[in-house]
Design a protein around this nucleic acid. Structure first.
Length: 290
DNA sequence: GTCCAGGTCGCGC
DNA sequence: GCGCGACATGGA
């Protein structure tokens, strides 16, 4: 089965897919030439599908592997999720205007960059963000792979591919399993508690996809999540399409130390003042400055 | 063995 | 509000 989504005028599939590292984390997977992004996805009806996403000129082509035909509702859910993943509703014109005035950011405009791939659900994006803290990227990949493989649902009997686990699936295991078998380490408690609060209705995360909610409201809600500190907060805000908080972590410090301070790190307060001329687009300005 | 990784929490002051 | 040790795991 095949579905087509009309793309905004400015769209660069390869950049949107690979300018952020999420495409390397399961259930996302891709072929080496990056011509398509693939993903196993569980729909709200319970059906599990394999999605193959690629660009054909002004259209996004979605090939959907399935045994039975999909209902209209299921097709709509797939289109809604992919539109979210690729930020098709986001308006980059103000950012592009600022880039056009900056000699080092011309490529962003000419190459239609700026979009950063995100997951269909906030739960998945928060879990993955927590799995990037205080560890290396290679361990982020292995923790995510263990998490998806041990708690997700298999696509088909002969497949090694799985869905991203639901919060309910996390709660079916105990913290020891998350810690010792999934090897999430001390992050197990954070992930378990996040899943628990979602299932109990304490957190209703997907309402935060609404751009009309103020960033301050989102910040207050995110700060309540254990395991989400200043860096994780910034990353989650970026994933929600809000770019005014900088992710001041070891990579950020390494970058600005070498590029702007000739190897000597200034105090934290000064770091948070960087890129301030970019206003609402500080995160993107830093991201594409690297 | 020790140190650190795209940090954060909880405590004491 | 700020400083500091603890935290699981694996690779250098």
């Amino acid at each position: 089965m095949k579905k087509v989504i009309e793309l905004p005028e400015k769209f660069n599939f390869k950049a949107a897919t690979t300018d952020h590292g999420w495409y390397m984390l399961p259930p996302f997977h891709s072929n080496d030439d990056m011509s398509a992004l693939n993903r196993v996805e569980k729909l709200s009806t319970g059906k599990i599908v394999m999605l193959h996403i690629k660009q054909d000129n002004a259209k996004l082509i979605i090939e959907i592997e399935d045994k039975k035909t999909l209902t209209n509702k299921e097709s709509e859910e797939i289109i809604r999720k992919i539109s979210w993943m690729y930020r098709l509703d986001e308006d980059y014109s103000a950012f592009y205007k600022m880039c056009a005035d900056n000699k080092d950011m011309q490529e962003i405009v000419t190459e239609n960059r700026g979009r950063l791939l995100r997951s269909p659900s906030i739960f998945e994006d928060i879990v993955k963000t927590i799995l990037t803290t205080n560890t290396t990227w290679s361990r982020t990949i292995s923790m995510t792979t263990n998490f998806v493989t041990l708690l997700g649902e298999r696509y088909s009997d002969d497949s090694g591919l799985f869905t991203f686990p639901t919060p309910e699936a996390v709660l079916k295991k105990d913290r020891d399993f998350l810690n010792q078998t999934v090897k999430l380490g001390y992050r197990s408690d954070y992930i378990y508690e996040l899943a628990l609060n979602i299932v109990n209705g304490v957190y209703d995360l997907d309402v935060l996809k609404n751009p009309e909610i103020s960033t301050e409201d989102v910040v207050l809600k995110m700060k309540k999540i254990k395991g989400v500190g200043p860096y994780a907060l910034s990353n989650i805000l970026m994933l929600l399409g809000r770019y005014d908080y900088l992710p001041v972590d070891s990579e950020f410090k390494k970058h600005v130390k070498n590029k702007y301070f000739s190897g000597e790190l200034p105090p934290n307060a000064q770091l948070h003042q960087l890129y301030k001329e970019w206003g609402e687009y500080k995160f993107l300005a830093y991201w594409f400055d690297r």
